[in-house]
């Protein structure tokens, strides 16, 4: 980071503090409350939530069916909810198979199942990802090091309204002996977005 850039960041930080102080004077924000809310949010909204859902779906066909049918109702069984953001969001879970692959984007802004995946990575919010993945998903997946066979059909889900999408990756071969916790450890945030195999 160059000196210029560092200086701009420092001045931005000062401006944020200034506006926060204005809001505090008006009784609209309480810095202690902000810190507490942030801490609670980060503790709750975590990609392990999504990974645990996938592992349960892999070992329990009944849960898998319920998850695909009504995500919001089913995820309570694993002790998570879609209430990690400002309000409870509708969840739609989509499943990869031998013949179809799903990948999620929000082309208009950055909508994302934050309660199940934690804050989104910068690449997910970038114009590069948002512009390109709807048009040429195979090239984008290849940039992630994920070569999907041509025979596998791709559906891109653009989270343009009030539903948030979560991908259930395919269970890797050779994992028959693993328990649910060990399976959850295999699942990555990128897999839950659809830009990685698992």
């Amino acid at each position: 980071m160059g000196g210029d850039h560092g200086g701009a960041a420092a001045s931005l930080a000062a401006r944020v503090r200034h506006v926060e102080a204005l809001l505090e004077q008006r009784g609209l924000v309480d810095p202690l409350e902000l810190d507490r809310a942030l801490e609670a949010f980060l503790a709750r909204a975590n990609p392990d939530n999504g990974a645990r859902l996938v592992a349960r779906a892999w070992v329990d066909p009944g849960f898998r069916a319920r998850l695909l049918l009504d995500g919001n109702a089913a995820i309570g069984e694993v002790g998570v909810s879609m209430g990690g953001g400002l309000q409870e969001q509708r969840l739609k879970v989509v499943e990869n198979t031998a013949t179809t692959h799903n990948v999620v984007v929000c082309t208009l802004c950055s909508c994302y199942p934050v309660a199940l995946l934690g804050p989104s990575p910068t690449w997910y919010k970038s114009e590069a990802y948002r512009s390109r993945v709807v048009r040429d998903p195979r090239s984008v997946l290849a940039e992630f090091g994920f070569a999907l066979p041509d025979a596998v059909a791709i559906t891109v889900w653009d989270a343009s309204a009030e539903t948030r999408y979560l991908v259930v990756p395919r269970r890797p071969e050779g994992t028959e002996g693993l328990d649910e916790r060990a399976l959850a450890d295999l699942v990555t945030r990128d897999g839950l977005i659809g830009v990685a195999a698992v």
Partner: peptide, 24 residues
């Protein structure tokens, strides 16, 4: 609000994938 599926070819004139968009 509906999830509506479009063929990439319909949207862009190319591509063999689908794009599902949530539309009021």
């Amino acid at each position: 609000v509906y999830a509506v599926r479009f063929a990439a070819r319909e949207l862009f004139g190319e591509g063999d994938h689908d794009v599902t968009v949530a539309l009021w």
